[in-house]
Amino acid sequence: MRIEKHPILEFQKGAKIKFLFDGRELEGYAGEPVAAALHAAGVRVLSHSHSHNRPRGFWCAIGHCSSCNMRVNGVPNIRVCIEPLAEGMVVETQKGRGRLDV
């Protein structure tokens, strides 16, 4: 799902890295938003609504709407549309409102 050739834009990408999504190893580019890497890998369901558990994807892509909240490296409710991807990152779909490890 990556754009290979664009008439105007050239995409400068960081290093190709690996990260974990719900236990699955995926590839992405360092520094791009986690949501972009997931989307490029065909992952579109990022969270679920709190009351009815309906699947949700991203909506705004600018860190404003919280529709893309996921668990990243053990911290719940990370807005993955603006969270930069890093090597070895552990990204998980969270249950409901997100679990805080105490």
Binding site: I3, H6, A36, H39, R44, P55, F58, W59, A61, I62
Partner: peptide, 21 residues
Amino acid sequence: DLPGIYGAGAVQTLMNLHGVK
């Protein structure tokens, strides 16, 4: 609220900034 329904600006960001369709 189904995934795949996105703000037009959001799609622009995904596409033009991050190079993802």
